[in-house]
Nucleic acid binder design. Structure first.
Lengths: 336, 336
DNA sequence: CTGAAAGCGCTAACAT
DNA sequence: ATGTTAGCGCTTTCAG
């Protein structure tokens, strides 16, 4: 590995000047800068992050914590984070907090404390108090996406608002018997997103003067299969049937569409279906949805972190706030 | 941040002993080891990777290069890599080589040369000669998954064999008019996987003494939508229709099933469909497939890398070789 | 604008 | 088995 001394020698300057020229910190004459650039190029020199970070305290590396890697939403957010960070020259270190509780504990207790990262992005993680504290103790910029965490800077989409928007769309089409697949009032106590979406659904109904029908609230685990089973319940059992279903995720909505087809219902003639997310398969299934632009969420989180990292000036409130969402009307919803 | 000196002082030993006790390298008495452990614990000390790696040359960090993050197969492989590496105490730095050619170039020219990683895992990347050379120049253990690269240690699944197995399954059920969705002979020149699968398909037919019907070869881009469109072509146009479809990926197979339903065909009564991958939605669609265990592929790559990293002894040929695959028969395939 | 030199916090000889 | 010490390769005062 070629080191800074070799570059300095070739460029005929000191290592200090090489460092300044390459990092852009401190003044260097245009001439020196150019000679350093040429020398570094010729030698294929790249600053050693280990030496640089030890000396400067900066790593140019951001830690990203995700709860799942193999679910579309999370990997899409991650994709956005990654592309924005890489364009800025940053590396990203990935911490996948899966089911394994031991690993999760280790991530907060050890991995993140190795001084390997300058900042942390936590994607849709429900952090307990301990974990929140451990993140704070790092003394680094931390930003969370989703699931408002009172003590963390959070980029959050208005889950209630999205759900209301989806429900209002169905109401606007004349639907009155609308079912919801997602959280059940009993089981979602500490899981923000499903609850918020259910509440938005109920608010919209209430605003329209419609009493929520408990039989039209079906739990679902956010997977295609979960949506499928929930819809089978809603459509298959005796008693009144909904004319529309609002699913708390696109994957469940797709499951619901498949279930409806399976039972001989035509979508949207016999049943309207709408979801939330903006899933890549939405277009394929002609699914109406409320898009929350997951890729953009990741990019935005990355930019917020970069802002805090680069301009030490306004580490104040950089773009932290509500994220955009948008109703996308496709072919899965129609008038009653 | 608490440093090694504080731990040394509290434990009443030198920093060298703390280092030895914590890293497990060199001899330390059980008593010292325990006192160090207690002291470190009490202070919440974690070895600074920046200092440690500068001094030792080891980072305990592995770089992982993936072509996509938001496709099920890749994120699942990554998931396997990540969990195995984290269990071993390793961090992973993620390099997502997406469409952006500039970023891709930078990854090989700069990111990977920052001395941030001890080894590299490249997941299903078609590397050109330059990139292969750049990887080799790193002087680090490198392992590739998929797409046999002659000059790299590669964990590869027998794509031709998988395709043959899938096709043989259909042949065994009495099918003779079998279509293939995947590579077209003209367009897949430098893309290994689609080609290999097509070749396996053709081999199986040939072995069974069946002439391949060019009309039964339909290109597809490995997506659900691509499979859907391809199947519509195969089933919708005038002339002889296949009784079975072998799709080169599960996502295309799912698309084919949906297309068949759309056209009023019942699967498997009117059409058998089989894919490759072991996609999580396979069970939901009752899809017969050849599972290639992507999660396990990732884990295996991780273990191979760890073996090279830890036992400097046999950096020889650790488990590099063919990956397992298995025919999973579900409800989408049946006798003619 | 530039150079000399003192670390950054560890690890790895080398002694003992 | 343990302590002493010299770096690892940069960055950053501090002078000039």
């Amino acid at each position: 590995m070629v080191s800074i001394d070799e570059v300095a020698k070739l460029a005929g300057v000191s290592t200090a000047t090489v460092s300044r020229a390459l990092s852009g910190r401190g003044h260097v004459s245009a001439a020196s800068r150019e000679r350093v650039r040429v020398a570094a190029d010729a030698l294929g020199y790249v600053v050693s992050s280990r030496a640089s970070s030890l000396a400067s305290g900066r790593t140019r590396n951001v830690g990203v914590i995700v709860p799942f890697l193999d679910r579309w939403f999370f990997s899409t957010v991650l994709s956005g984070v990654s592309s924005a960070l890489m364009r800025a020259g940053y590396d990203i270190t990935l911490y996948n907090i899966t089911a394994d509780a031991d690993v999760r504990r280790e991530v907060f207790a050890t991995f993140l404390r190795r001084q390997r990262v300058d900042a942390v992005i936590a994607v849709s993680i429900e952090l307990d108090d301990d974990e929140t504290q451990q993140l704070a103790d790092l003394g680094l910029p931390v930003i969370a996406i989703g699931g408002p965490n009172p003590s963390l800077k959070t980029l959050t989409v208005d889950d209630t608002g999205m759900a209301r928007l989806a429900t209002q769309h169905l109401l606007g089409l004349g639907h009155r018997d609308i079912a919801h697949i997602g959280a059940s009032p009993e089981f979602d106590l500490d899981f923000h997103i499903p609850t918020q979406r259910r509440l938005g659904f109920e608010q919209a109904l209430e605003d329209a003067g419609i009493a929520a029908n408990p039989a039209f609230l079906e739990p679902g685990d956010f997977s295609v299969d979960g949506g499928f089973r929930a819809a089978k319940q809603l459509l298959g059992r005796p008693g009144p049937r909904p004319t529309a279903i609002f699913a708390a995720s696109d994957e469940m909505a797709i499951g619901a569409i498949l279930a409806a087809r399976d039972l001989g219902f035509q979508v949207p003639r016999d049943l309207s279906v709408i979801g939330i997310d903006g899933h890549e398969l939405g277009e394929f299934f002609q699914l109406s949805t409320v898009d929350q632009f997951p890729m953009a969420q990741g990019e935005r989180a990355a930019h917020a972190i970069l802002a805090q990292l680069e301009d030490d000036a306004d580490a104040g409130t950089p773009g932290a706030g509500a994220l955009p969402f948008e109703l996308i009307v496709r072919g899965s919803t129609a008038r009653v």
